[in-house]
Design a protein around this nucleic acid. Structure first.
Lengths: 226, 226
DNA sequence: AAAGTGTGTAAAGAAAGTGTAAATTTTTAA
DNA sequence: TTAAAAATTTACACTTTCTTTACACACTTT
């Protein structure tokens, strides 16, 4: 079940590079050099994500983005732009883009952002996940340990889902902050994340001091065992 | 997903040796004895890299290189030449070659440069890298030696990743400092780097006193074998 | 051969990261 | 408005990691 990505950019070289790299990372890719071409493609099939250059020969990216949001609010959009002014960045996000990458961009960074965005937007396909004696019912939002229901606070539940969706991978504090805390500003020296991790451990781990699921990766972040 | 390399040289013996060695290292190889033949191949399929002899019967390598750069700027080029004059070397790089190897060359050196060049140009991070009995899982940040998990400290892990990403190339202490220690100021006479190298060796080498992977290049720095 | 340079290595003090409890602030719900 | 719940801050202990230092040894140069 590959995710399909539509990339819209007037620079054919960029399109070529993007297509190659995205396909290498397991995505199916449609490319369009103009907004007109993109619209044609959109009528035939819906992508799971759109990567949109803000500067196109036949339309203003900002307007296009706003339009897309109205037409297909469920498709996440990542904006590409040569401009790096903060005002643009803010505007891009305000009109509904999910992320914003400034050209020239590191391909790897873009790939990472695409992955993060897709996980964020279409996070869970299963209704429930069972890992060891831990069970999470995403529909009912019920977490059980050894069949016993566990009461989690909203933040704790979000954290747990986040880790389960990214199980196996190391999640650094900055990524956690960006995903769970989003725009609410947290000082870099804040220990909020660590404290919540402790709370979660106390609720889902048998021996919170020797966690089996929610592991510490010293100097890097945390990782959920799978 | 093998990388495809087009080698262009009028010496059939060299072509034969190169093809054999490159294929041994996991590349797919096309060969051409002339620029005309090379162009034919280029029309049918795009290689990931071109190794080009500067002396060809039917064209000047310098001109060809310039032409290739214009037509397919994304394909890296390594020039081969019998001449070892500095002026040629400078010119070769100025007209857009990515590297330059003087004949007669050590096959191993060429292989190393090809690897370095490809990594530089398409820095696609794999999820894991296996070198001998050493395995690094970048997503999980887990390092195993002969299947046994090895616990590395943050600095040690960063160092190892750095060396693996630049395997084959000599890394001098200043480059290491700039990459791993970044802005944290370290006195030029500090032995921190050496000490960490020792620690790493003790964790990943079978015989830390006779390292197999993380080699010392006296007077220059360290180099990770591949 | 002696001096000088560069690297290997062990040990110890300094620094940083993390676990954890408790206090405080903010949010939510009645 | 008030009480409970949740989120966040704070402080400190403990552990791990980093860095320095000192000296041994090998290799080069004079």
């Amino acid at each position: 079940m590959k995710n399909r990505i539509l990339t819209v950019d007037d620079d054919r070289d960029i399109l070529k590079v993007l297509k190659a790299n995205l396909e290498l990372h397991g995505y199916e890719v449609d490319t369009a050099e103009s907004w007109t071409k993109a619209q044609e493609i959109l009528t035939t099939r819906q992508p799971d994500m759109i990567i949109l250059d803000i500067m196109l020969p036949d339309g203003d990216g900002i307007e296009i983005c706003r339009h897309l949001r109205k037409e297909s609010p469920q498709i996440p959009i990542i904006l590409l732009t040569a401009r790096d002014k903060v005002s643009d960045k803010v505007m891009g996000l305000e009109i509904g883009a999910d992320d914003y990458v400034v050209k020239p961009f590191e391909t790897l960074e873009l790939i990472a952002r695409i992955g993060a965005c897709l996980r964020r937007v279409c996070p869970i396909t299963e209704d429930e996940v069972v890992i060891g004696n831990l069970k999470v019912d995403f529909k009912k939002q019920i977490v059980t340990v050894s069949g016993k229901k566990v009461e989690l606070t909203p933040k704790e539940y979000k954290l747990l889902c986040f880790f389960i969706n990214n199980r196996g991978e190391v999640m650094d504090r900055e990524t956690i902050r960006k995903t769970i805390w989003k725009d609410s500003h947290i000082y870099s020296w804040s220990r909020v994340i660590d404290v919540h991790i402790q709370h979660l451990r106390q609720k889902i781990e048998k021996d919170p001091s020797n966690p089996k699921y929610l592991l510490t990766v010293p100097g890097a972040g945390y990782r959920f065992m799978d």
